Computed example of a mutant assay.
Amino acid sequence: MRPPPPAFAVTAADQALLDALPGLAFQAMLVFARLGAAVMLLPGLGEAELPAPLRLGLGLALVALLFPAVAPVLPAAPDDTAAALQMVVGEVVVGLWLGGLARVAMLAFAMAGQLVAVLVGLASLLVADPALGQGGTALSRAFALLAAVLVLATGLHGVALRAMVESYAVLPAGDPFPAGAAAAAVARAGADSVALALRLAAPFVVGAVALNVALGLLARLAPQVQTFFVAVPGQILAGLALLGLLAPPMILAFEAALRDTLSNLPGLR
């Protein structure tokens, strides 16, 4: 009696695909290590308001979407487990560094809101701010949320994602991480972010100085006037009026500066 035929026959192409699966899985892990780490920090996509599982799912979706584009430049899986682990950790560090550069630039608007709150007399309205900690003000929190909405509305998150893909040209997977150059880039990004925050809040600095000089003259000329009780509500009202007047140009200036920063991330410049 003849034995029954096999349920299926493995062709040469199927066998080649099965043999390549471990290497493809390792390469997909490398892509997820970089993109997943970056997504946790990228503007608009890595906001603390988004649950971590959602950001993790977004990272996995990006791997499925972008893996065909970066697969040709990915290294093969090494035979040594320690070497493979070192490569994965290195990709996580690269992703955190790239996402951190974008996140530091994003913090400029929140810092500007913090400065404005202090200058207009709203520093006592404290809220828990994931960006600035427990000392954040309601105004800085509003600025941070506005910055996230601005990034998503203008498509700047797409610029950051393109930088992640193009980064493989300047930081190939598996190459040593340039720690010195990376630290210098972070320092420059921090300095640029603080400078941008100071520029955005500069009109309020001038207004606060002018108001305090006027109040000092009033106290000298009319000592009987309770300057403090007049100054506090007047300072808040004048500050809010100035904020309403300057909010549109502040948003436009921040959007232009953030676009320029994201366009100069490694891989795009």
Score class of each variant (00 low, 15 high):
99 G>K: 00
211 L>Y: 11
212 N>Y: 14
163 A>M: 03
77 A>I: 09
246 L>P: 04
199 R>H: 11
196 L>K: 03
104 V>K: 02
200 L>K: 07
148 A>K: 06
120 V>E: 08
132 L>Q: 02
87 M>S: 08
238 A>V: 12
37 A>Q: 05
176 P>E: 06
40 M>V: 01
87 M>W: 09
124 S>G: 10
248 P>S: 07
41 L>P: 02
251 I>T: 14
70 V>M: 05
130 P>S: 04
82 A>K: 09
235 Q>L: 07
111 M>F: 12
218 L>E: 05
154 T>E: 08
243 L>G: 08
42 L>E: 00
84 A>Q: 05
52 A>P: 07
91 E>V: 01
121 G>R: 05
195 A>R: 14
38 A>T: 00
259 R>H: 12
132 L>A: 04
104 V>L: 13
155 G>Y: 07
15 Q>W: 13
140 S>A: 13
225 V>F: 11
12 A>R: 15
131 A>N: 10
152 L>T: 07
119 L>I: 06
267 G>F: 01
125 L>N: 11
182 A>T: 01
221 L>K: 13
5 P>E: 11
232 V>L: 14
103 R>Q: 06
121 G>V: 06
212 N>C: 09
185 A>S: 13
233 P>D: 10
73 V>M: 12
180 G>F: 00
161 L>R: 06
258 L>I: 09
166 E>F: 04
256 A>R: 15
152 L>G: 03
13 A>E: 15
264 N>P: 06
124 S>W: 11
170 V>H: 02
6 P>F: 09
58 L>Q: 13
90 G>E: 03
207 G>Y: 11
45 L>K: 00
204 F>Q: 01
264 N>F: 03
35 L>K: 03
116 V>N: 06
110 A>C: 07
6 P>A: 15
81 T>C: 06
62 L>A: 11
70 V>F: 05
221 L>R: 15
252 L>H: 14
141 R>F: 15
59 G>E: 01
132 L>K: 04
254 F>L: 04
73 V>C: 09
168 Y>H: 13
159 V>L: 05
203 P>I: 09
102 A>C: 08
112 A>E: 04
112 A>I: 05
157 H>L: 01
30 L>E: 04
3 P>T: 10
15 Q>S: 13
163 A>N: 04
102 A>R: 00
8 F>S: 12
236 I>N: 05
258 L>E: 02
13 A>D: 14
163 A>I: 00
71 A>R: 15
56 L>A: 12
47 E>T: 14
231 A>I: 07
267 G>W: 02
104 V>W: 01
131 A>F: 07
28 A>Q: 15
237 L>I: 14
232 V>M: 15
113 G>L: 05
252 L>G: 14
183 A>K: 08
36 G>P: 02
26 F>T: 05
126 L>K: 15
210 A>K: 10
100 G>C: 04
39 V>N: 02
206 V>Q: 14
176 P>Y: 09
171 L>F: 09
93 V>N: 01
19 D>I: 07
253 A>R: 14
257 A>L: 03
149 V>D: 15
20 A>T: 04
34 R>F: 01
227 T>H: 07
36 G>F: 03
17 L>S: 12
104 V>H: 02
32 F>L: 15
6 P>I: 09
32 F>H: 15
88 V>Y: 08
35 L>Y: 04
134 Q>T: 14
95 G>W: 00
167 S>C: 02
199 R>D: 07
230 V>R: 10
